[in-house]
Amino acid sequence: MRTIVITGGTDGMGAALARHYLAAGERVVVVGRSRAKFDALLADAPGESRFIAADLSLVAESRRVVDLLKTSYERVDALVLAASFIRQRRHLTAEGHEASWSLFFLSKYLFVTGLAGPLGAAGKPVVVNTAVPGARPDAIAFDDLEMAGGFSFRRSNAQQRRANELLGILATDRCPRLAYVTWGPSRLVRTGFAGEVGPGMRVSAAVLGRLLGQPPEKAVQPVIGIIDDPAPGRTSCRGATARPLTTGPHDEEDAARLASAVERTL
């Protein structure tokens, strides 16, 4: 029996993955904000599971969950990072971090680095990071990671995506056997929209999702393939299609610089 940890596992693609692996007889650990949604998920797919309630936009909560996982499980076979909450504007958490950066990168950094031991204990460890690949190499503002000097949704999104690609360098350097995949769906997914956005984005997402979106159960089929047959090293995919890794002239140095900057803020 494998241990599958899924952040954002009560909605959308995360929930679809949880249902699949519960039905397959795996141990599934879901990290999310809604116990009610988790209970509803279990009604559809009972099995060996655990729910950990947490707001992963808070560093202290991410640390708490990582510590709990390390003390509870000697081995983590797969880590799926799918928690999402979209914000169009800069927002500070109670800890003073920019909320999108904290959720979409700081929490992932803590999970990937903090669970290096349990992942390394697995036979075929895999991290699937739902950070759409393909951000430009210079997307990170190293001197202003939390964008106090000028926030935009587009810049924030690009920086998070590039940072999560560099996180794969740190992760695979520590564990060469690890498969680290930055992954995004091939097209829109018909799922709930969690976030604080304007009415235009919310209506567009709802309408286009209904008209053009694929169901979450279909969207995650490539992820299931990745988890069930992982290939060591860093890769990136849109749906089932492999995409070239974004490369810059100083990737290793940028990854180390990013880690150093983040450690100073945590």
Score class of each variant (00 low, 15 high):
122 A>Q: 03
108 K>E: 09
68 L>C: 06
30 V>L: 01
98 E>A: 00
104 F>E: 14
141 A>F: 04
99 A>F: 07
83 A>T: 01
87 R>Q: 14
49 S>E: 08
95 E>A: 01
95 E>F: 00
31 V>A: 00
36 A>G: 05
140 I>T: 07
93 T>Q: 02
28 V>Q: 01
133 P>I: 14
107 S>C: 08
66 V>S: 15
101 W>R: 05
34 S>R: 15
104 F>M: 14
57 S>A: 15
133 P>Y: 12
40 A>L: 11
72 S>D: 13
84 S>D: 15
44 D>Q: 05
50 R>S: 06
73 Y>I: 06
79 L>T: 08
137 P>R: 12
73 Y>W: 10
38 F>G: 01
25 G>F: 00
135 A>C: 13
36 A>T: 11
115 L>D: 12
77 D>E: 09
94 A>M: 05
131 A>Q: 15
119 L>P: 05
122 A>E: 04
139 A>D: 13
44 D>M: 01
139 A>V: 14
30 V>I: 10
60 A>G: 12
95 E>P: 01
78 A>W: 05
65 V>F: 06
41 L>D: 05
37 K>I: 00
50 R>I: 00
98 E>V: 00
99 A>G: 02
122 A>C: 05
66 V>L: 10
80 V>N: 11
111 F>M: 11
101 W>Y: 04
124 K>P: 02
132 V>P: 14
26 E>D: 15
92 L>G: 01
29 V>W: 01
32 G>T: 00
103 L>F: 07
74 E>R: 13
45 A>V: 01
84 S>A: 15
95 E>Q: 03
114 G>Y: 12
126 V>R: 11
124 K>H: 07
128 V>N: 05
119 L>W: 03
78 A>I: 05
46 P>C: 02
130 T>M: 15
42 L>A: 04
137 P>G: 15
100 S>T: 11
100 S>K: 06
65 V>E: 10
26 E>V: 02
123 G>K: 09
100 S>Y: 04
40 A>P: 03
58 L>S: 09
131 A>W: 13
97 H>G: 06
128 V>Y: 09
28 V>T: 01
107 S>M: 14
142 F>I: 07
111 F>I: 04
49 S>H: 02
80 V>F: 05
127 V>Y: 12
62 S>I: 03
72 S>G: 13
65 V>R: 12
88 Q>R: 10
130 T>F: 10
42 L>M: 13
110 L>K: 10
139 A>T: 10
66 V>E: 11
27 R>C: 11
37 K>T: 00
105 F>G: 12
39 D>F: 01
82 A>Q: 12
105 F>N: 15
75 R>Y: 06
35 R>K: 08
88 Q>A: 13
102 S>T: 04
56 L>W: 02
122 A>T: 03
138 D>F: 06
37 K>E: 01
60 A>S: 14
134 G>S: 08
58 L>A: 07
62 S>C: 06
61 E>L: 13
120 G>W: 08
52 I>N: 10
133 P>F: 07
84 S>I: 13
63 R>S: 08
100 S>P: 03
54 A>I: 04
47 G>Y: 05
82 A>L: 10
126 V>C: 14
97 H>Q: 02
